[in-house]
Design a binder for these strands. Structure first.
Lengths: 208, 208
DNA sequence: TGTACATCAGTGAACGCGCGTTCACTGATGTAC
DNA sequence: TGTACATCAGTGAACGCGCGTTCACTGATGTAC
């Protein structure tokens, strides 16, 4: 898609440069075309300005390439959420995490789609387990739920189920708004800020 | 996939029989393979026991075929929700709609995926508009929200936004649980009933 | 009642396409002597 | 300092595949005479 610009071949130790370029190009194509299918070996090679076989020097497989793209997105989400979860008040922290999560999804809809709305079979082995529960993003949410329950201000019907279930429920709620806005952008949504504010008020009231 | 069984050619006026068989086969493939991509003209023709070109006597296009499959799912969802929304108490009705909705999604995950988790570009023209807001399913939800607000028991922060926003929010919540359970079946979910019960209690508390 | 004919559901072969992947290769770069 | 060589990033051509779609066709069916 992007016309190939002239590129110099990488020097001896700099093989990783192309690797980075490949990943960046793949992400770019994903965002531009809004289609996972458009991220083909050939399209990526073309965007980088290189022939298809040279991709295979850096990734064993198309799947492994996509896996890495996906992993980068998870890392990015982890990063922004970890940076966000800094308040002492767990309820404020939940609120902040939720806002940042929704924003992440709407800013990178195609990444979000692959991460949380697609079948995971294109991703190697224990991808799900590693990416979901093990991530610092979910870890932060879980820990924040624990702290919220510890305050005693969480409704018993929720608190009694434990922090894990509470975290899954909160995640479900926030994911619901995010993914539905991505999947059905032409639904009768109100202004984004109004929507998020009302939604979080909604969620908060459900907890406390 | 399904080995072709011997089939008799349809009689003069019975051309619609094959049409029905095609749609049924397409739905079956969708459920069996859990993959939208697997529903190819060739695979459907094979399952029905017919050659690919004969599909074109009944559908102008692959897209139109998928569109019809999708339309059937929407009709089915409309039907079960309309059948469900019968209580006088709007809050009980909301609860019942939500339960039926989640069940529909988990019973037909691949249908749900196409309906609410995919890009809509494979579907013709004003599909979204027609399918979303115009459907009796969403109509029922909206109307039930109106009735709920009319009771005066909905929290002002929600009620003041109006029934449309309230409906979108409730939908977001229920969609969140449904779609996340479909997309991440190996996440640490509790027992389904516990999950749904707690979730709906959660939602209800957010409203009132 | 028997025959010629129009209809039209379904066939068989083929098209062009983009895909993931492979293979033997080229030729610039850094290193050893 | 100069030359031969090993390394290895990237190439060019080709493979087999499944796809959506097209085309001219076949042959069973119902109807008109």
């Amino acid at each position: 898609l992007t016309p190939a610009t002239a590129r110099k071949r990488a020097a001896r130790g700099e093989g990783d440069l192309l690797r980075e370029e490949i990943l960046t190009a793949a992400e770019q194509i994903l965002e531009d075309t809004a289609s996972e299918d458009a991220v083909s070996i050939r399209a990526v090679a073309d965007a980088v300005g290189v022939t298809p076989p040279s991709i295979y020097r850096h990734f064993t497989d198309k799947n492994h390439m996509l896996f890495e793209v996906c992993g980068r997105s998870f890392s990015e989400l982890d990063r922004v959420i970890t940076e966000t979860a800094v308040s002492d008040d767990p309820f404020e922290t939940l609120d902040a995490i939720a806002r940042v999560y929704v924003r992440f999804g709407l800013d990178h809809p195609e990444h979000y789609r692959i991460m949380f709305m697609s079948r995971g079979d294109a991703t190697p082995e224990d991808f799900d387990e590693h990416m979901l529960v093990g991530t610092s993003a979910f870890g932060r949410l879980f820990e924040t739920c624990e702290r919220a329950i510890a305050t005693g201000r969480v409704r018993p019907a929720v608190a009694d189920r434990g922090a894990l279930i509470m975290a899954m429920l909160v995640w479900s709620q926030v994911h619901g708004l995010t993914s539905l806005m991505i999947a059905k952008p032409s639904a009768p949504w109100a202004d984004l800020d109004v929507m998020v504010d009302t939604f979080l008020d909604f969620v908060r009231a459900g907890i406390t």
